[in-house]
Design a protein around this nucleic acid. Structure first.
Length: 596
RNA sequence: CGGGGAGUGGCUCAGCCUGGUAGAGCACCUGGUUCGGGACCAGGGGGUCGGAGGUUCAAAUCCUCUCUCCCCGACCA
């Protein structure tokens, strides 16, 4: 049992002006955390207590499929140089030098380090599979830390790594993680969804994120309410309604039309009286091509063409082109690749590269343009557009790919489903993905297979952000007065609020009740502060404890109030029945979690 | 890195435009009265106004530089 009067729980009546999102405000107001710097926080008593519970759940579940390690947070340069990431990660890695001048960095993720262990020790297929994990502090010099604990520069991560003999083995390790992650998030009371995610330009065949819907989230998720399809917008696809094509004019060939002042899609659509879906828009990028085999990096022009009512998805475009980075073209670059001004760029008359990211202009068209007819596009000439343009007949491209973001309301991509997609913001709490051979290959991890042949183990990498779990839990369960956590991760299960400590009988009843609850195994906080009842109620509502027992006037008739924070409901209960009632409450909650 | 905003007791903020040597509410300490939804009265402690430089008789206030934090974007294995 803990006594509030002896604890450091610095609640705030008002949220600091810096806090914007709900979880940030409440973590501060409830005395869970205090800020030390941008994206760097002190975790105080309640915050640490909750995190410890989260960690315990993660550890307990991970132990069913993996072995816990603990790797250093301060790391030498060499493994990173071998994998190539010392140079590709860039500014997000905290770097430092030791007294001898040797390069070091702070742990950002541990693929390289785990791989050094694997290559040093694993010799035979008989030793596979291996799944190794750790729960450890990670350091990332984020360009923009934000939203309290949501995006920080130091955080606690459960990261695991699997080593398998072949792809089938990796599938199994991946599926084990999928199942365990679902258990973990369920036990933490999160209302989560598993979504398909982009696996990045660096190989990797499958990637899945675990998301909790919240407006504080930084990712956009497309989901189908009918069939359960869900994907990160970076990956999501959809089916489109058929488009009514325009009738050709004149001889049906491209026709130059004077369109003064019509640089924006809306202007063009209005001028021709067409839907933006019949217009072709152009977004011009410079793409960074990584130099192969010691050759230097180079910026190459990329023109993306897609429907006027669609938006380029830069993650998809990165994947389609294999570029390392994208940025939009600047005026002087536009004039190098195009003859016309911005607003009048079009695909007709352009000579696309044969090879992606070669010297000239790489032309990428969105798949939805293929098969379309009689479209309108810029004429690469100020104040002129072309109509009757047919992709394939009137222009060609370097490659055609899905490079657009789906929009809410489009049809679910599953052919058997006719649901309409929803798009919502979400917080990423976990990510599992199949790495492939990138690290094992580059760093020389090898084992002998049953035939005595040397083979490279295939890897997977899996992460959970501890603070993200806490943050997401708060985001999904708060009101004007505070928040409530699931019993499993709350710092305390129940707070016993003695409404008036000056009354010896109330004090004694509260003490006895709290002791009984503690003896029965509940995490009990006794609010024995010499404060007015109103102050105690406000604090109790604020700090995330799911249940409260008010020891007040009704003790005269042998009763206390049991308040359920989530529903803000109160029931009068005989003192003798409190233990049973609390057990019932907690069991109900666990059942609810288990069935979700 | 681009754009915007903010740094004044622990918190929320006023004062700045138009220089004259710092205030309110909450919090804190003491005493008293209260005691079921952030009480009241009285007394009290606490601030080199983010930092450096400059202008001036005089700077929280004007000027220059700088640091930090927040928001939008870029970015985010």
């Amino acid at each position: 049992m803990h006594r509030w009067s002896k604890l450091f729980i610095p609640t705030l009546r008002e949220a600091p002006a810096d806090a914007e999102v709900a979880s940030h405000k409440f973590l501060l107001r409830a005395g869970y955390i205090r800020q030390l710097g941008a994206g760097v926080y002190n975790y105080l008593f309640l915050g640490q207590r909750s995190l410890n519970k989260i960690i315990a759940i993660v550890r307990e579940e991970m132990d069913t499929i993996a072995q816990e390690f603990y790797l250093p947070g301060i790391l030498p340069k060499e493994p990173w140089a071998e994998s190539g990431r010392w140079s590709t990660i860039g500014e997000n890695m905290f770097r430092l030098k030791d007294r001898k001048g040797a390069d070091l960095c702070l742990g950002f993720t541990h693929e390289e380090i785990m791989t050094t262990i694997a290559r040093g020790e694993l010799r035979s297929y008989k030793q596979l599979p291996q799944i190794w994990y750790q729960i450890q502090t990670k350091f990332r010099d984020e360009p923009r830390p934000k939203s309290g604990l949501l995006r920080v520069r130091q955080f606690i991560m459960k990261d695991s790594y699997s080593f398998d003999l072949d792809a089938a083995g990796l599938d199994k390790s991946f599926d084990l993680h999928d199942a365990v992650y679902r258990k973990i998030f369920t036990r933490c009371g999160l209302n989560f969804v598993a979504v398909e995610a982009d696996s990045g330009a660096m190989g990797g065949s499958q990637s899945q994120e675990f998301m909790v819907f919240s407006d504080a989230g930084e990712d956009l998720i497309a989901s189908c309410p009918q069939c359960g399809y869900a994907a990160n917008l970076e990956k999501a696809t959809s089916r489109l309604e058929p488009v009514t094509e325009m009738e050709p004019t004149g001889d049906g060939g491209p026709e130059l039309v004077y369109t003064p002042g019509c640089a924006a899609i809306a202007d063009v659509a209005a001028f021709f009286n067409i839907s933006p879906a019949s217009d072709i828009k152009c977004v011009a990028y410079m793409a960074l091509k990584r130099g192969q085999a010691g050759r230097p990096d180079a910026w190459r022009g990329v023109a993306a063409f897609l429907r006027g009512d669609h938006q380029v998805n830069e993650t998809k475009l990165l994947g389609a082109t294999g570029a390392a980075e994208l940025r939009t073209m600047q005026a002087e670059e536009l004039s190098r690749y195009f003859s016309g001004p911005a607003g009048y760029l079009g695909p007709v008359g352009i000579d696309p590269n044969q090879q992606t990211l070669d010297d000239g202009l790489t032309v990428v068209v969105d798949r939805t343009l293929e098969g379309r007819r009689n479209m309108v596009c810029g004429a690469n000439k100020l104040d002129y557009h072309l109509r009757n343009v047919i992709p394939g007949r009137d222009f060609t491209w370097t490659l055609s790919a899905d490079i657009r973001s789906v929009n809410e309301g489009e049809m679910c991509p599953k052919s058997a489903c006719n649901g309409q997609l929803l798009v919502g913001k979400a917080v990423e709490v976990g990510h599992i993905f199949k790495l492939g051979y990138k690290y094992s290959e580059s760093m020389g991890a090898r084992v002998l297979d049953p035939n005595g042949k040397e083979v490279t183990p295939i890897m997977g990498s899996y992460g959970i952000g501890m603070e993200r779990i806490l943050t997401a839990a708060i985001e999904q369960a708060n009101d004007a007065n505070g928040f409530w956590l699931p019993v499993s991760i709350a710092p305390f299960t129940v707070v016993v609020t003695v409404t008036n400590m000056a009354d010896p009988s109330l004090r004694k009843t509260g003490e006895t009740l709290a002791a009984e609850l503690a003896a029965a195994g509940f995490d009990v906080l006794l609010d024995d502060r010499d404060e007015r009842a109103g102050v105690k109620f406000k604090d109790a509502d604020l700090v995330g404890i799911p249940y409260r027992i008010n020891v007040g006037k009704k003790t005269a008739v042998g009763q206390v109030e049991l308040v359920t924070r989530a529903t803000a409901t109160s029931e009068d209960i005989m003192l003798a029945e409190v233990l049973a009632a609390m057990k019932e409450k907690v069991e109900e909650e666990e059942l609810l979690e288990a069935s979700s």
